[in-house]
Write a protein that binds this DNA or RNA. Structure first.
Lengths: 212, 212
DNA sequence: GAATATTTTTGCATCGAGTGCGATTTGGCC
DNA sequence: GGCCAAATCGCACTCGATGCAAAAATATTC
């Protein structure tokens, strides 16, 4: 539960000093572990990378690792969550008024879609698809993103009666994004991500918009 | 990968004898393990149930367990997959012609929704929600259901050009079902499952059907 | 029915992830 | 300097999972 987010909790609450050196070293160590882990995962595979190897590469003991990450998988979880949910929230709230929820989410995702092109994203996504356990974790992360997006949408349209439909919007939008990314990777990255994202939302509209 | 489905593969293909006693005993053992596991999970919790306990309860050795299930989690995975994907496929293919994909899937799900009321379903679903790892697995299973449903839809509408939209239909429909079940469990089971399912599909139609 | 082949079961040794505990070190604070 | 709290570490341990080879159960052949 406590990845990168809460290592310096209390700083802003208690008036005691931020304790400069400690927080900085802790931050550095955290990043060093994550970096080392992701690098070894990409190079040698996830299963083949032992905690001992990560610990040694990061210059800490095996035991200390667990003071920074709850598990080996959490390195990947943390990476997935690090930026995306937060930036999606920002992009959603920055959308102009007058649009409906679906359009808002779609346009926000289109803005973020550049981030999927990076070598880091593609490389780590390959790791995420390399084993059943990790695929499960990846799916689960989409669940977390779904919750986060739902919360953001409720923040923007704070009508309790819309809760259920906003949940649906979050679910279907993130699903559309997931399928768009999958199709894009499948296609080898020729066409831009945007076009897949557009196609996905258009597809949803045409299939679910019909008179029932 | 090989749960209950393939333990007697070859029986129907090769003309060699079905080997009566072996297949039957194997089947019995498999069911005994699954039963024991699910019972212990529901009673004592997932983490607290060790493989030794399951093995002892099923009357086998710890090592033999792994000849029937690849992992402890697979007992739950298997249970989830056992019926649902297959019956959904059946229900989808049994729908009358003339309906669109979304209606077909929705109506098929409405038929199956009775199965969610059972005590077994509710009890095991509680186990599935009891830890982060299992929640991840549950989400992943929806991914497998998604693949299966997509395959079924492609079977019914074998137009390669529709592949992308049928994938979207499978994704959004199963997502709608998931949210409907969650809402139903959240509500304590007062209103019937059907109404939540209807509401979810209607919600998708009204949100995504708007002119963009 | 006995001998043989194949599958199933089992015990044992081993690996790796994860946890609890207590000792030691390090940084913050007076 | 000395005191407190936090970080690091080593160690022992549990548990899930795998490889291997022997033993037991079942199927097959003559």
């Amino acid at each position: 539960m406590c990845g990168i987010a809460c290592q310096n909790a209390g700083m802003d609450i208690v008036s005691s000093k931020p304790s400069g050196v400690r927080a900085r070293k802790r931050q550095e160590t955290l990043e060093r572990i994550a970096e080392t882990g992701l690098r070894l995962f990409s190079r040698n595979g996830y299963e083949a990378t032992t905690l001992d190897a990560i610990a040694e590469g990061a210059g800490i003991s095996r035991r200390t690792f667990f003071h920074y990450f709850k598990s080996k998988e959490e390195i990947l979880l943390d990476w997935q969550l690090r930026g995306f949910s937060a930036s999606l929230r920002k992009a959603v709230l920055a959308q102009p008024a007058g649009k409906g929820p679906v359009e808002v989410v779609r346009d926000a995702m289109l803005i973020l879609s550049d981030g999927f092109r990076t070598q880091e994203f593609i490389s780590i996504d390959r790791v995420l698809r390399s084993s059943e356990t990790l695929k499960a974790r990846k799916q689960a992360t989409y669940g977390l993103h779904e919750q986060a997006l739902y919360a953001t949408l409720m923040e923007r349209w704070p009508d309790p009666d819309r809760g259920a439909t906003l949940r649906l919007v979050a679910m279907a939008s993130l699903g559309a994004m997931r399928l768009a990314i999958e199709a894009w990777i499948q296609a080898g990255g020729d066409r831009p991500v945007d076009s897949f994202l557009h196609a996905a939302f258009d597809g949803l509209a045409s299939e679910f918009g019909k008179p029932s």
